[in-house]
Design a protein around this nucleic acid. Structure first.
Length: 426
RNA sequence: GGAGAGAUGGCCGAGCUGGCUGAAGGCGCUCGCCUGCUAAGCGAGUGUGGGGGUAACACUCCACCGAGGGUUCGAAUCCCUCUCUCUCCGCCA
């Protein structure tokens, strides 16, 4: 959420920034509501002051044994008017809140201006696309032949877009989770967190999924609970409504969680395989930092996520999302894309973003500097480190052999009980 | 699921027979004094959000004692609803 004062004082700047995103915001309504709010507030507060003074007076008069009927009657009217003004104010503030909570973040100056995903510049490419002396199969075929992935039965159990792993694939998924977490906690300084996988509405609002993106979420029947679409939600909300101490920062958390997404509107896209599922596993990285360090921290976060791909020896590239492709809450985002041989192109496997104070304002996460008056909002960042299902897909594709077996990356073998190759379903 | 207790400032903890209580007292923290060192001691200060005001301070007003509503001239204090926590019983991975 953008700050009300900031929007008021920088109306045209905000308008322009949102246009770059392709978001036509109705800031005229905001402007009108906002000035109305201040008028109502002024009037109501003046009356409350009057009432406070009179109440003191009544107390004193009663003590002195005087009759207070006149003043009491007068104040009854004043209270009535306050009630009316306050209810108008409440309606007014709800409208402002509704407008503000639907405004996306303002892109950082280093975010390239562009219309859509075709205009995302490539920052770097690491490794060469894997070479094969045969036609590489898509990972779902590799998985089916090895009897380690079974999408048909998953569809029977639940429905389309759910995964069912057996044997070496199940173990590979679990090994990757441990591999990623161990690196992040052991080498990158993150604290491991195992959060709830179901959160309430407030948490979803805090990180920006609500109110605008309700249709992307799974909501639990007749409750205020939602399945998390990413660990970002529960982990960022750990510090909701808290005032942190300056010397607690920066805070680094990493969490493994399953993620649940309705994928509304993506029918027909990536219908096969592990790329786009309603349920997938992810190891997430989340940071709470001081504003002046947040862009430096974004680069480090990106490097932490890249490290996983480097160790797995998977070819990848990094792109910067342009304004037209940037997510709602982010000011700047890097996507890491891994090489998928069967598709002959790079596919997203991680998304690393700086939200600046956008989420912190929504979730009310502040910090206090010792010796300084007041509080400031922290900057929050997060990134996948990495999406596990897509990593499995990438390994199955990039490490497949002509005989249908799949080699296991060296770095991962210790996490697979020393297994070097997947050659059957066990 | 049944019965009961509770939710107050960074923390602990009074107030809860309505009115000088934004909130006693303590701890912590900050600054100053004192002091061979450390500790102790002494003094002052120390919440958040919003409106007005200012170049910026100052200053001033309003709100906030789990959340929302009600009663009242006036509510941390009385009433209702909700949320959460704790204790006991039952059930259970």
């Amino acid at each position: 959420m953008l700050e009300i004062k900031f929007v008021r004082q920088n109306l045209s700047h905000v308008q322009k920034a949102l246009q770059n995103r392709g978001d036509a915001a109705d800031l005229q309504t905001f402007k009108h509501c906002e000035s109305q709010r201040r008028n109502l507030l002024k009037e109501s507060e003046a009356l409350k002051h009057q009432r406070n003074v009179a109440s003191q007076q009544i107390a004193q008069m009663k003590k002195d044994g005087q009759n207070t009927d006149t003043l009491t009657t007068e104040m009854r009217d004043v209270s009535g008017r306050i009630k009316l003004l306050d209810s108008a104010l409440k309606k007014n503030e709800a409208e402002i809140e509704s407008i503000l909570s639907r405004l996306p973040n303002i892109p950082h100056q280093s975010t390239p201006i562009g219309a859509n995903e075709t205009e995302n510049p490539v920052v770097k490419q690491i490794g060469q696309p894997t070479k094969f002396n045969f036609d590489p199969l898509p990972h779902w075929s590799v998985g089916r032949q090895l009897k380690i992935l079974d999408f048909e039965r998953a569809a029977k159990i639940t429905g389309a877009r759910f995964p069912l792993y057996f044997g070496a694939a199940a173990r590979l998924e679990r090994a990757l989770i441990n591999f990623m977490l161990d690196i992040h906690i052991g080498e990158h300084g993150y604290l491991e967190v195992l959060p709830p996988f179901i959160v309430n509405r407030q948490s979803m609002t805090g990180t920006g999924q609500l109110p605008k993106f309700e249709e992307d979420l799974f909501k639990l029947h007749e409750s205020d609970y939602y399945l998390i679409p990413t660990a970002e939600v529960p982990v960022t909300n750990i510090h909701r409504d808290e005032i942190l101490d300056e010397n607690q920062l920066p805070i680094y958390y990493t969490a493994y969680t399953p993620c649940f997404r309705s994928e509304a509107g993506s029918y027909g896209k990536d219908t096969k395989g592990l790329i786009r599922q309603h349920q997938f596993n992810k190891v997430e990285l989340v940071k709470f930092v001081k504003p002046e360090t947040s862009y430096e921290e974004l680069e480090k976060l990106l490097a932490n996520a890249e490290e996983i791909l480097i160790r797995l020896e998977l070819p990848y590239q990094v792109i910067t999302l342009c304004t037209g492709d940037l997510g709602f809450s982010a000011a700047k985002t890097y996507d890491i894309e891994v090489w998928m041989p069967s598709q002959g192109r790079y596919r997203e496997i991680s998304s690393c973003s700086n939200f600046e104070s956008f989420q912190a304002r929504r979730a009310n996460i502040r910090y206090k500097t010792t010796g300084k008056k007041g509080t400031s909002y922290v900057h929050t960042l997060n990134g996948s480190g990495l999406a596990v299902g897509r990593t499995v897909a990438a390994i199955l594709e990039n490490y497949q052999q002509v005989d249908g077996t799949v080699l296991i990356p060296d770095a991962l073998q210790p996490f697979m009980g020393g297994m070097q190759k997947i050659s059957d379903g066990t």
